[in-house]
Amino acid sequence: MTYTQRRSAAGLFFLAPYAFSFIAFILLPIIVSLCLSVMQFDMTAPHSVKFVGAHNYQEAWKDDYFWQALRATFGYVVLMVPGLIVTALGMALGLHGMARGRNTVRALLFLPGMLNVAVTGILWQWFYNGEFGLFNFVLKHLGLNAAPWLSEKSYAMPSIVIMSLWWSLGGTSIVLLAALQQIPKQIFEAALLDGATGPALLNRITLPLLRPVLLFVVVTNTIAGFQVFGQPFLLTRGGPELSTRGLVQYIYETAFNNYRLGYGAAMSWMLFAIVAVFALVQYSFLRRSTS
């Protein structure tokens, strides 16, 4: 056997345990949901299950609530993903530059991420409460106007994003910090000897070396952003006037409150197509811009 063949054989061995689990618990359910999406499948009407072709997809296309939910989802992604990446990168660089106390600060940043989202929702609902909440209490004491945090359409989504940032910033920061720490120190030292300064170091050394991990962070957060559910659900239940009901919440309600699994599956696949386009664009962009 040649070296390449031996390497491939070893590769298959290394891939096997994960591949097995993936096929059984992800790929199979995915195929099932693909089948569901072309069926009329209502769990409470077991006698009327039948194949309907593209009907569910056509229904979504004509469904106002689908488009409204898609708009809400986009609203969240557009605010959340860039906001999160920029602040998390800032936090990671800041943490990396700390001589002492880095571990403590990192732990504190990550602490909110360890709370489950339900408690986070209850806490922030009280903070944001318009008449009787903490934030407006503080604002009034500072002599400022109270804000309609969750009750105005223009405020609600940014309020949700602020809570989400608090909740998830630490996690993304520590991924980026781990990537920074993985860059061998010698590379920096060499660059410093060549007379490189702060911004140049960031542009020429740090960001290019960070590229694969940055790609990972951008893509996973975009996926997570498009699938947002818990945060708006717990804070506003999708209000005001359904303006913060995201697509996954609508899918969830369709599949598990209305029991229309087929229609829910079809909408999931439409969401999949949208996310896939975004991820591909990001992928090719991040590949090209830094190579």
């Binding site: 609902q125 009280w126 409460n129 318009g130 008449e131 009787f132 309609p148 969750l150 009750s151 506003t236 239940r237 209000g239 005001p240």
Partner: peptide, 17 residues
């Protein structure tokens, strides 16, 4: 009634407001 916000009333009631 206070400026409309869903679910707000009960919290206010508990706070004696």
């Amino acid at each position: 009634i206070p400026p409309p916000e869903n679910g707000l009333g009960w919290v206010g009631y508990r706070q004696k407001k």
